[in-house]
Design a protein around this nucleic acid. Structure first.
Lengths: 241, 241
DNA sequence: CGTTGAATTGAGAGATTTCAATCCATGTGG
DNA sequence: CCACATGGATTGAAATCTCTCAATTCAACG
């Protein structure tokens, strides 16, 4: 096994694609105080006025909407480095809640937009963040619209791997902090189906679990194939043709 | 029946919530030439550099992604007045293709963003457009993640009604320009299931069809109830408590 | 009037859910 | 330190929903 990647241990891969630390958006967030969020505590609520953008410093957030009859749809997860809430003009479209202990920084949208007026780089970074959020939503739609239960569960593990490891090796260790119910509500499945599929993935030796929240993907490529994903997304430098 | 609403006959309701005509974003688009798009012709392709934002002047676009094994996911439809492509930083996340004969105007994103630097109203309108697009994507995720086939089909008809009528009355006439395959690929179902559900809606007297692309929703409220939606979204002025 | 592609309907198969029972990990109190 | 209680996770069996495959109907068009 080549690379250990507990969610909090390394910056998100998607985020690394943007300038980090020295980038103005990150710089802006850096000036704001670190806010610790307990597991289960909300960062913002669906329907509230979307006055702040949030950056996840560590931990994982679940983003969800509740239907009036109580059903819950998890529209996505936010990992370390992810920025959420920039794309909302009026009110938040979902509730953001800490899965584990987490920490975030908040930034006033108005302040951000005003600063963006004078700063080209910042504008680009803001649109980059919006584009990231949009991209994740599209990914979710494709998964729910086209994929089988098995493909969905595999896709979720791969998503976690992409977000929390650099995918340098074909075998990666990932943290799976969310409960089976979280996974089910995100994948449009039931808890039981998620369990059965995970059991199957274990039987097929595609993944194994060391504790409930800690998994090893034995072959990212094989799992991606199983997920019906384009392998290009997961090609590792050493394996890429 | 109170209000006729063929898709091209009146401006989109969502769009009316923003200043129209005199608003700077619309104003910008107005300066651009009208581009006629034949049915089936693409406006932009997934993966192409997202250099332009597009406003639908009339007609309907289907927005879709193709998986590498050929499956198609329609991530949404764009109706008259909708603006798409503002939220993309790098490349387009989906292909946009005319369902019917349509017309659009294009606007350079770079131009738009530069102008936005000096214009507060324009900035707000841009974020409004992004927020609209994001909102539709979230809606889609909730539908695919939580709802049954029957609820999904009903939701689609209601979505069309919301986009193409003012919902002043409980009975509305809507255009359904897309094929059953389009509907199926948007709802994560098969053609046959869509057909059966539509047949059931007809049997229940919730909708009726006058021609293949033309339906009457006999009671928006009843259909919304059937769709598992919050009735508040559809309350008509006369019916609202 | 025949051809074509889309839409519809039926019957059987398959995937996922539901309901129920059991297992496991964790924390708490005695 | 152990027994027990608790909530999440797992597994099984039956029910249900949706899909697949096949046949038929319908509408548009040359």
């Amino acid at each position: 096994m080549a690379y250990l990647a507990w969610p909090d241990a390394c910056p998100s891969v998607t985020y690394l694609k943007q300038p980090r630390g020295n980038g103005t958006l990150s710089g802006f967030f850096q000036t704001k105080p670190l806010e610790n969020i307990h597991a289960g505590q909300a960062v913002f609520w669906e329907g509230d006025e979307a006055s702040n953008a949030v950056q996840v410093v560590h931990g994982v957030l679940r983003l969800y909407r509740i239907l009036h009859d109580g059903r819950r749809a998890i529209v996505g997860f936010a990992f370390q480095g992810d920025v959420r809430g920039v794309a909302f003009h009026g009110s938040y479209l979902y509730t953001a809640e800490a899965v584990t202990e987490a920490a975030v920084r908040r930034l006033s949208c108005r302040h951000l937009h005003n600063s963006a007026a004078e700063d080209l780089i910042l504008r680009q970074e803001i649109f980059g963040a919006i584009s990231n959020e949009m991209s994740q939503a599209q990914e979710q739609i494709v998964m729910l619209g086209c994929k089988s239960a098995e493909e969905r569960v595999a896709s979720l593990f791969l998503m976690i791997a992409r977000k929390t490891t650099n995918l340098l090796a074909d075998t990666v260790e990932i943290g799976v902090p969310m409960t089976r119910l979280d996974m089910a509500d995100c994948l449009g499945l039931t808890i039981e189906t998620v369990c059965r599929v995970v059991a199957k993935l274990k039987r097929m030796n595609l993944v194994s679990f060391t504790g409930r929240n800690h998994a090893i993907i034995h072959s990212v490529r094989a799992l991606a194939h199983f997920a019906g994903d384009d392998l290009g997304l997961y090609a590792t430098p050493s394996l890429a043709s």
